[in-house]
Amino acid sequence: MDTLAPAPAPATAPARTLQPMLRLIDIEKVYQTKTIETVALNRVNLTIGKGEFVSIMGPSGCGKSTLLSLIGLLDEPTSGTIELNGRAVRSYSDKEVAALRNSKIGFVFQSYHLINDLSVLDNVELPLLYRPGVSGKERRQRALDALDKVGLSARTAHFPGQLSGGQRQRVAIARALVGQPELILADEPTGNLDSVMGEEIMDLLLELNRRDGVTIVMVTHDEQQALKTERLVRFFDGSQVS
């Protein structure tokens, strides 16, 4: 597949000096039930620069996915501030937050979360449905372009159930890309794939970051893949340890 570039050299080196895109300041997330209080994130401070590829690692339950939900504006912290492009997210209304998610952020999930009732093309078009001023024709064209980018132009009329795991994840990446977001959040994108397919997906993400300058934050359990990214952040028991 000619769209996939070979994996670059491991990038454990410190991050380049980049303009900050996202800042997490003293973030705490506490889940409270009647009897138990669980601290998922404890005073997390993290800055992600524009164009960076950051991977987040840690054992299960250490707060990685919670962190990704907060960065993705899907949830709110119990305390602390999240700044996106210099503005505190708390100051946005629900509608503005939805618009931000639509225009600035693309999600890639471990279990793909494709809508089985929709064709590959319709799945990829989905984010553009919620973007005002995008015509049906433009939506279709942009979805085709995104599918071309991930090497799935020939599968537009297929349904998710007819694709392999790797192909589904590529569709999910195309869906994340179609709105041309500044930030892609990938939650264990290779977690359900075998090593060959996992490599393919990882190469694709690296290519997007390197060629198109898309900022990527990826949660992973795979040390090998994490080492391919520019920066590796480790979490343990809700706190950042490196």
Binding site: D94, R101, G106, F107, L114, L126
Partner: peptide, 12 residues
């Protein structure tokens, strides 16, 4: 799952 995805991608 579908509702979550739609919300994640900007559905109000």
């Amino acid at each position: 799952g579908e509702i979550g995805v739609r919300k994640a991608f900007g559905a109000t």
